[in-house]
């Protein structure tokens, strides 16, 4: 029983990481109908920045805040400088550009920080919370951080004028522009937010999966699976999908298929959802006018 609870809670901890990564993906998708394949590598690079700060004697939370802020700026700059010029290019070109971006961040991380696997500190040290035997302090902390991120993102989009403007820009760019929303900048802000969320996801994942330039490959895949499962145009669906994938992956890995082939669980989920219900559990069916 304790073992099962343990698997469930580690599933939830990583599921939180998948959920916020999926949320970041969906934010970009809603605005541009594109999936950012560089999301994982950008998050990995942010995590390395935090790691370098920690190595230089920074305390955890200042390093955390600085990394998130820097990632936000980085995301905005990348959108303005690299993604924007391809706004009207075919999907193929955009995906190629994203993959190019991924290559670049992977190479930068490898070049500056090396390919050695590093351990990454967690701020949630010490004894397990609430006296729970089945859950490490970091897992509890990661779940709480994911939930805080989700709450903040929700509050931002629901209760602030800027959030409203960003939603408007994503849903109906033409009308949003007519009422004075600067659609281009909203998109750049969206990229900034996605990069910042990705940085948090990376910092929460790194103590569990360890830090190396290829750390986010699997995480991004599970986030894709979560987003597809929940419906790639529905943020809440994607979040729920992320948590679900985390738990399912962990349970299947522990009890059914074995941890060595866990990644294929994501493959099966993605292909399975595409076959059975392409819009995902909570997505809207897209009907195209011919």
């Amino acid at each position: 029983m304790v073992e099962l609870l343990h698997q469930l809670s580690s599933g939830l901890a990583l599921g939180g990481v998948y959920a916020i990564t999926a949320l970041a993906l969906v934010m970009i998708f809603q605005a541009t109908q594109l999936v950012n394949f560089a999301q994982g590598e950008m998050a990995m690079f942010s995590t390395y920045v935090a790691w370098a700060l920690l190595q230089n004697g920074w305390n955890y939370w200042p390093a955390f805040a600085f990394t998130v802020a820097l990632s936000f700026v980085g995301g905005v700059v990348i959108e303005r400088a690299i993604v924007r010029p391809f706004a009207h290019a075919p999907i193929l070109a955009s995906v190629i550009v994203f993959i190019g971006l991924g290559f670049i961040f992977n190479a930068l991380a490898g070049f500056f920080f090396g390919y050695t696997v590093q351990s990454f500190d967690t701020p949630f040290n010490g004894r397990p919370w609430f006296g729970a035997k089945f859950m490490s302090a970091h897992e509890s902390g990661a779940i709480v951080v994911s939930l805080i991120v989700l709450a903040l993102v929700f509050a931002f989009f629901r209760f602030t004028p800027l959030g409203l403007a960003m939603r408007a820009a994503a849903q109906n760019p033409a009308s949003a522009r007519l009422v004075g929303v600067r659609v281009g900048w909203m998109l750049a802000l969206g990229w900034g937010l996605a990069a910042a969320i990705g940085a948090i996801a990376g910092m929460m994942a790194a103590p569990i999966v360890y830090l190396d330039p290829n750390m986010m490959g699997g995480i991004l895949l599970y986030a894709f699976a979560g987003a597809v499962l929940g419906g790639i145009d529905n943020p809440w669906g994607a979040v729920l999908g992320g948590f679900t994938v985390g738990v399912v992956e962990n349970l299947l890995g522990a009890y059914v298929v074995g941890t060595e082939v866990k990644l294929s669980v994501a493959l099966i989920i993605i292909v399975g959802v595409l076959v059975a219900k392409p819009s995902g559990l909570f997505g809207r069916r897209i009907v195209a006018r011919v």
């Binding site: 995906v95 895949l221 990644l263 493959l267 993605i270 076959v275 392409p278």
Partner: peptide
């Protein structure tokens, strides 16, 4: 299955295939 749903889904599905392949080969 993947072809019916636009380029992006195919990209996602094939990405998943690429990431999972080494693990499947070492099964």
């Amino acid at each position: 299955p993947a072809l019916r749903f636009g380029g992006l889904y195919l990209a996602l599905a094939t990405f998943a295939l690429a990431v999972a392949t080494p693990q499947l080969l070492a099964f």
